[in-house]
Simulated scan of single mutants.
Amino acid sequence: MNARRNVLVAGTAVLAAFAAVGCSAENSSHAAKAAAGPDTVTYHADYPAYSSLDDVLKTSDAVVEGTVVGTRVQKVLPDAPAGDNPATNPQAGLSPVEAKAARKAAEENPVIVTVSKVKVTRALAGKVAVGDTIEVSQLGGTYHGVAYQDEDTTLLAKGGQRYVLMLAAHGKNPYDLLNPEQALYSVKADGTVKAVSVNGFDGAGKVDQLAAKAGRIAGSRTR
């Protein structure tokens, strides 16, 4: 059985979990597991969009070239929301009974993410060094026999493929892509950088050219 779940992404994909109390789905993952046939939950997420590759680079906390050396899939439960603003707390104004029911629904429908370990082969921007292993979180993955899929996300693959990733940092949490389509690029054997998605930006050039551009943008921040 296929289910569709809406996810509000507050900033970037890893933060989806913190808005999960506002999610909706036609069927829960439990219902999907019990149904015959393929078990799939499709996420529909709203991501921040950028007008150019330069804008993505300007916003990135780190830009790296690297390869995937390991992955894991995990569920992320939302933090309990606080405050009286319905825009940031979907439970604002609910009675204690209603708020408890909303929290239970969120716990029964966790956000599933794939966390990839990426070995950095080149640091183009940010506080990352060659040889570091960083973690990058993406929405979706197969968890307990159910495939959770985000319409816009292409999960990073092991096998030696080099990627250029434009990342947002969240302290102790894994990095995530600023936008799953506009911040994910593959690197060809000759160093050419190409968008993985048709909705990514063309004209990134080669890694050396992109590194020079990222360096200029980083330098302009400090002036």
Rank of each mutant, 00 (worst) to 15 (best):
T133D: 05
T222G: 01
R5W: 01
S186Y: 05
Q182M: 05
S51W: 04
P38N: 11
R216M: 13
H144Q: 12
I134R: 00
A189E: 15
A80G: 04
Y143F: 15
I112K: 02
E135V: 10
T154Q: 03
K119T: 09
M166V: 01
C23V: 03
Y148N: 11
K172I: 01
V115Y: 07
P81R: 11
V187N: 05
V21A: 07
V73T: 15
P110V: 04
A147W: 00
V56M: 02
L210V: 08
A49Q: 15
D55T: 13
V136R: 01
R72Y: 10
E26L: 06
N89F: 09
A218Q: 13
P110A: 05
D46W: 07
N199G: 13
K75Y: 01
K213A: 08
G37L: 08
N6Q: 05
G22S: 14
T133R: 06
L165M: 06
A62E: 03
A218E: 15
L156P: 14
M166C: 06
S137M: 08
I134W: 04
K104P: 01
G171D: 08
G203W: 11
V9D: 04
L15V: 00
N85T: 13
F18A: 09
V68F: 05
A157C: 02
V164F: 09
L177F: 04
L57S: 02
A25T: 03
A19P: 08
Q149A: 13
T40K: 14
L8H: 08
A87I: 11
Q209S: 09
V113N: 06
D39A: 14
A218G: 02
D54P: 02
I134C: 01
A34S: 13
G159S: 05
